[in-house]
Write a protein that binds this DNA or RNA. Structure first.
Lengths: 194, 194, 194, 194
DNA sequence: TATGAATGAGCATTCATTCAT
DNA sequence: GATGAATGAATGCTCATTCAT
């Protein structure tokens, strides 16, 4: 039978919940929190409207769970970025990539800022931003020590935002220089600073 | 329903336009871009609804002009912050204040992030973010040189966001240390680096 | 131009508010409080949906105002019923008509019960039911004295409800007998009981 | 969203049907016909949503059966009220109690009016209102004769409604007077009038 | 048999915008 | 010029009902 129609009958559909969450993140990245509606999400997830309201008590609830999923996925991704880092140079290179990341990084970067802004007004979301901050600092601290990690974290956040908004990309060299300067002269060993 | 507040007849009201823009900024700071509507703004400005649509062609237009006003005011404010700075120590102190600014700074910081996020999706707003970035870097560069200014700008942005979201304020000492480290050892003279 | 179309442009339309209230009463009489929605009312009043929500802050508000209008109109109508009553017999006859009133009375009777039931759950509506009770007792008391008026009022209410629900109409004779018995032997004079 | 309350597995549950009906009556008494939904009823009966739709073909059906149960229970209760009545005075006293019944009577009174109003629009329910009217008149008639019973029935209905709505309870004396006057001078014997 | 998931229709309400006055 | 009324589109959400398991 025609299986490519507007919507196939999908009475049995586990992980629909998760699909909705991912669709919500997509929509939020594209249209911002303001443009995120039950209908847009439903369309993106290829799911009837009622399905979205069935699985989530409210739009705010859906948003919160989507952000939670984002932090969870992002933490894993972030961790993996540094998995194979063995030298100081590799570490720096990964960070530069992070800032200059192409469209692939775009989505997650935008979502990150969207989450930050949302958390500014919704204290319930603070646990997520705090978890995310703590997590990323912890990963960085394995290479730099805690103090430098916090500084680096802030610097990266600022540079990523600027990179997203810049008319033309800043040269990688400038980014690298900023990172190296922030890391300071002492950090030569790949893991931890004594 | 027709909600008629107690509103005095205001026959001659030359800076109503400006009052509306300021009200819009207030509302945006409080409720975010999403919660900013003609009605909320009109109520905040204590002006009839029709007045808002009369003075501005569309909500997007009003928003853009409000952001423009924000950048203009903010640039002046930022400039003034450094007016009396004469020593390296004073410079650092002003920057630390910037990050730990109390509720007074809160509004403008939130609006800054709101503008950044809006600009991410609306290219028309990029001229504003670019002007603002250029402007603040220029001011900083008077004390640090251009390269350091860019780094410092990014660091401050990241730290301000973290400060806004932190459960409990980070110690001023950590902030100061981050700034001092970013300024580097060479920057001793208050004005410009050779 | 075609003026009989689905909806004529009606930019200038005073007493639209009142028309909406009357439409609301019509709908409530026909479909009950449960079936009364913005949309049904708008359709009945031949007015766009937005017009209903523009003029009334909420559906509850609209309902309350409609009931208020009902009580107001009904009081006047009730009063007028007894305008020309001069003899005891005429008085009795008007009351019997009240109970056996045809479809013309049907609407108002149903609305009356609808209001009573609504007031049971919404204390704000109690002022209306109390005004209405007080008013009708006052009119009746002009012919019977206060004590009898209250009894009569209750009796009429019960009989009207039974008449509305009866499979086949009770004989006017029985109604008259009940009324006469309630009025008691003393009430001969058309106005007031000594 | 899937709201899973703490619900014990209830494998063998023979009178679940009845429990649902009683829950429906509770909900109807509290929130009115309008607020009576499958979900509210299920929650009140502490039963899964599917269980309500499983046992009853439609909401209208459930409502009708609930009303039927109400009439059945109410008839028995009403009958029992007069079981021990032996004198005229006792009879009057029971009737006065009926009107001034406290919160215990509140539920059934409200449900009675709810049923009457529903029957006004749904002819299927008329068999219930007629049965109920016939039944209560029959009980009363055992003490008064048929004519007086009908009058009394109407009077009681009106007085009960007024009592429910009155800001402050009318004095029992007035109620008693109304009843005594309606019973008339002849009714002295406890059972039947020849 | 019992039930959680699913869905389409409908509802109250908000809102940007237009327009007659 | 200024504004209250008006309106059509959209939004968050609820709900009766169906159905696969």
């Amino acid at each position: 039978m025609a299986r490519t129609g507007a919507r196939r009958a999908r009475r049995y559909d586990p992980d629909r919940r998760t699909r909705i969450l991912d669709a919500a993140l997509d929509v939020m990245a594209e249209h911002g929190t303001a443009g995120t509606t039950h209908r847009t999400i439903a369309a993106r997830a290829d799911v009837p409207l009622g399905s979205v309201t069935y699985h989530f008590a409210s739009l705010a609830d859906l948003q919160a769970q989507a952000f939670a999923r984002y932090v969870e996925l992002q933490s894993a991704t972030f961790e993996k970025l540094f998995e194979d880092v063995e030298t100081h140079e590799q570490f720096v290179e990964v960070l530069v990539d992070l800032v200059h990341g192409g469209p692939a990084r775009h989505r997650s970067a935008v979502l990150g800022f969207e989450l930050h802004l949302a958390a500014l007004r919704n204290p319930d979301l603070r646990v997520l931003t705090q978890a995310w901050t703590w997590e990323s600092r912890a990963v960085l601290a394995r290479f730099t020590g805690p103090g430098t990690a916090a500084r680096l974290d802030a610097l990266l956040e600022g540079m990523i935002m600027h990179a997203l908004l810049a008319a033309e990309p800043e040269p990688r060299e400038a980014t690298r220089a900023a990172i190296v300067q922030t890391l300071g002269p002492a950090t030569h060993t790949p893991r931890g600073d004594p």
